[in-house]
Every structure is written in C-alpha cells, then in structure tokens.
Nucleic acid binder design. Structure first.
Lengths: 168, 168
DNA sequence: TATTGTTATACTCTATAACTATA
DNA sequence: TATAGTTATAGAGTATAACAATA
C-alpha cells in the first residue's frame, strides 16, 4: 500500500465528554481484530518489501526460500499450503524462482508425479543475505514493542493462524 | 482463501534430536511476524466473510459502515485512508454501497469539492445486524484465546499499525 | 498552486474448472 | 479413483497517472 496515515487526526481512545475536536473515532474499528490485522499486515509487508528490494525479491519469495531452506525436498503442494497459496497459483511462483536460478525441482523416489523443492547454491547465498535483512527487520519490531510484548504477541497469532476455529 | 491446513503434519516446535518423522519445520516462518500476520489475517477474514454472507456484505463493506456510523459526515478521502484503501479505489466501493441504499454522499458546508458520508436508515439497520454478528465473532476469538491474551493482543497490533516505524 | 473526488488503466493476487501423468 | 502438478481464465484487489471542480 502507499497510504500515509500522517496528516489525519485520529482519536484512539474513548470520546472525552468535553472534546469538540474534529478528530476521527477509530474505536469501533480498533475493536475488530480483522481490521487491526489488515492494517498491521499491510504496514509490515510494505516495510519488508522496502528492505528486501535491495536483493530484488519480494517478501513472499523470501518466505518460499525460507521454507525450502528448512525443509529440503519439500513437496510443492505442501509448500503452497503452508504459505497460504493455492497450489495452482504457486506453480508460476516456483517457476519464477527456478528461472532466477534460486530453486530447483528435484525428482523424488517412488513417485514420479511429484518432486521436491531445493535451493540451488545461488538460492542458499541469496537466502542468507535475505535472512540477515529480515532478521534485522524483525529485531526492529522487537525493539519497538519491547521483548516481552513481542514474545507474547506471536503466540495468539499462531493459535489463530493454525488452530481450527470451533464451528459457530 | 480456500486452503485446508488439516492433512499436513506440521512441526511447531524445535526439532527433537531423535525425531525422524517427515513433518514440516515451520520454525523459520513462525519467527517472521509478517508470515504469521498473513495467515492469521487470511483465516479471520475468511471466517468473517462466512458469517457476514447471511447479510450479503463483505468484511470490508462492514468496516466502511462501522467507520461512517461512528463518524457521520466523514470525508470520503479520510475514510479511505483509515481503512487502508486508496481514495481512487474507494470511489467504486462507496458507489456500490450507495447503489445498495446503505450510504449517502451528503453535501457539506464551506467546501463544494467534498462531501460527508452518512448511513441511510437502511444502512443503520444493516449495520446493527452486521455489528451483532461481528461482535459475536469477536467474542468467539476472545473465548478461543482467553480474555487476558485477547486483550494484550490488540495493543501491539495497534502500535504496529499506527505508529510510524523508525527509519532504518 | 494544492486538494477532493473522479476516471481509466495496468498490474498483482486469488479462485475455479479442467486437464496430464502418475499412483 | 485419487493425487501432484499444470494450464487457462476470470475475478478481486491494488497502484499510477491524469483530469475537473473547487479551494
């Protein structure tokens, strides 16, 4: 996104009885996790795009490299699933990374339909550089929030992302 | 998204020395806030879409209604900015809601370029219904996470969404 | 000159159906 | 029959430039 939230007067708390300013009441939105997640995700992904642009890769491409690095020969479909991309849309992504010489589709034993994804040596090199950048970015987040809050922050995200919700 | 994370064997912790299972190591991704935010946002927005489908509105449309409800006569551009949508893409959105008879563009004093957005009576009615649904959904999140975690969860999101990051 | 809303347009991301080759 | 990967395609969502009306 390319939106600057700077010039707006935002009212982050309850309306004070006396205030007659023309600030904007965000409370009804801030009570909605979906809204907060949206804005936060947009902000962080923009920041990541920015720092990764030095290496000419996008945040999502970095995620692919990171996943393959930790799981050599991972199946393409599994990788897509974990990254929250449909396998059908993941094909082009892998092909691009393959064309860039970063990822390789390796044949695998006992199943000639599928293959395992691995990093090339260039892929490893680029991943290391990218990882350093992303880690530094992550550290800045930690500094902004404070270690304690930062640490307690990941837990609910993981729960919400991976645990199935109870049906209504 | 339409991705089921069910059949995958995911390894959420550190690799145990002995384990030779074929589960997938998520650690490198789970250490990245951007990845967690992505998956969480996708999951919650899917759930919201589902419950709001009864009323034939999308999560983003609900957000628009909620913002206008709390800020009658809000400027179109400000609303777009707060919602994380560019003003140019917000035009069609407001027009749709206007065509549905939920939102109205009201002329405003002293500036004939802009106008204020308000809810129609139908808009108010629909908002109330939607709000009840969304609140119930929010309550389910709270139940899943526990009140304490839920409450401490919003704070860092707000910081990350609204505070400007320090430049690198 | 700057700002508000707008149009047109291109680009990226995501969703759906149908195919192939293997199992 | 079912699964892994693929293709083609349509539909959202997002980004950029340029414009008219007004400040």
């Amino acid at each position: 996104m390319k939106i600057t939230m700077n010039r707006l007067m935002l009212k982050h708390g309850r309306t004070s009885k006396k205030s007659k300013d023309k600030t904007i009441d965000l409370l009804p939105l801030k009570n909605h996790t979906a809204y907060l997640l949206r804005l936060t995700q947009m902000a962080l992904s923009d920041q990541l795009s920015l720092v990764l642009r030095k290496l000419d890769i996008k945040p999502m491409q970095y995620m692919v490299l990171a996943l393959i690095e930790a799981n050599p020969k991972i199946q393409q479909g599994s990788a897509a699933e974990i990254l929250g991309i449909q396998k059908t849309n993941f094909v082009a992504m892998v092909t691009t990374l393959s064309d860039l010489g970063l990822v390789e589709r390796k044949a695998v034993m006992n199943d000639r339909r599928s293959f395992g994804l691995v990093l090339t040596s260039d892929g490893h090199k680029l991943y290391k550089q990218a990882h350093a950048i992303v880690q530094a970015h992550e550290q800045r987040l930690k500094d902004r929030l404070g270690a304690e809050i930062y640490n307690s922050f990941a837990q609910p995200l993981i729960r919400l992302a991976f645990d199935d919700p109870k049906p209504n």
